[in-house]
């Protein structure tokens, strides 16, 4: 029955919001909009434009050759590998954690919620250092790892681990409020109709959270490809081996190779733009399906 009250409530909220927005005098609205636009252009659009101008300053040929350079390609490859491993893992983890937190009562729940936020709270550099402490040559498992000829720090596994760590809150954070708002009614109904646990997950829970889930995945992916701090600590900056795109940009920049640095940066900037577009599309679809429910 809770479905009735939440829907009616959000309708009511929308009404209040509408009235309030139209009750401000015009000049207040325009001043605020102008301030926001100025701020955006100063801190977002200008840097973005600068990246592309700098990247193309020495011509398209230099731009392209900076991108097809062997080190650049290997950095892109590693970035995609890290994201390709981190995103699915955090997707599964995020759904499981959000499900447990939203649908069940258990001891230690508030500790779990706090732990999920940990990567937001600690500096990524510290996160990287923790992995060095655990898996590094002088670390807890260092001896064991080197005995078995395994390399984590200054190698791809370390980069993947650091990426997983910094990106694991996104999906869970997106889903927890969504699943809490939806409550348990639907799952209970499905259970009573004879659905097994997997069927409830596939046919009821996931369809209900699909937009939030997609949104979380997009954010996770953006962060996974863009992460600098934690990855920088565990990478060791070995060209062509353990450099991700952001690290590659930094190295080129430190070598005063600006055109190449900005060319590589422009790829990351494009990724960000694609992320923003996908994010708006998902938001648009989510809002549309929410409206469809309310209008009926």
């Amino acid at each position: 029955m809770s479905g009735i009250s939440t829907t009616q409530f959000s309708k009511y909220n929308a009404k209040i919001a509408k009235n309030r927005a139209t009750s401000e005098p015009a000049w207040v609205r325009w001043t605020l909009i102008a301030a926001a636009l100025l701020y955006l252009s100063l801190f977002l659009f200008m840097p973005l434009a600068a990246v592309f101008t700098e990247a193309l300053r020495k011509g398209v040929d230099t731009y392209i050759s900076a991108l097809v350079d062997a080190d650049a390609l290997s950095a892109m490859k590693l970035t995609f590998i890290a994201a390709l491993i981190a995103v699915p893992l955090n997707l599964v983890f995020g759904v499981a954690a959000a499900w447990a937190i939203a649908k069940f009562e258990f001891k230690g729940k508030s500790i779990l919620i706090t732990l999920i936020d940990l990567p937001f709270a600690v500096s990524p550099v510290i996160a990287g250092l923790i992995y060095v402490l655990i898996f590094g040559l002088q670390g807890w498992f260092g001896q064991w790892l080197s005995d078995h000829d395994l390399k984590v720090i200054f190698a791809i596994p370390g980069i993947v681990l650091a990426t997983i760590f910094v990106t694991f809150p996104f999906v869970a954070r997106e889903l927890i409020p969504l699943m809490q708002a939806q409550g348990k009614d639907e799952e209970e109904a499905a259970l009573v109709l004879g659905a097994s646990g997997w069927q409830i997950l596939w046919r009821v829970t996931l369809p209900n959270i699909k937009w939030g889930l997609l949104y979380g995945v997009i954010l996770t992916n953006a962060r996974a490809m863009g992460e600098f701090g934690a990855v920088s600590v565990v990478s060791g900056h070995i060209r062509g081996l353990t450099n991700t795109m952001p690290l590659h940009v930094e190295i080129l920049y430190n070598e005063y190779n600006y055109a190449a640095a900005f060319a590589a940066a422009s790829v990351l900037a494009l990724l960000a733009l694609v992320t923003l577009v996908l994010k708006s599309i998902v938001e648009w679809y989510a809002a549309r399906s929410a409206r469809a429910i309310e209008q009926n």
């Binding site: 029955m1 829907t7 009614d185 639907e186 109904a189 109709l193 004879g194 659905a195 097994s196």
Partner: peptide, 29 residues
């Protein structure tokens, strides 16, 4: 779950899914 599928249940409190339309509610089983 397989045992439950022998039964059609109608509850004191409906247990309808309020974010799906009539057709989709009936589709669930």
């Amino acid at each position: 779950p397989y045992l439950r599928r022998n039964f059609g249940l109608i509850f004191q409190d409906h247990k309808l899914l309020y974010n799906r339309n009539c057709f989709e509610n009936v589709a669930l089983p």
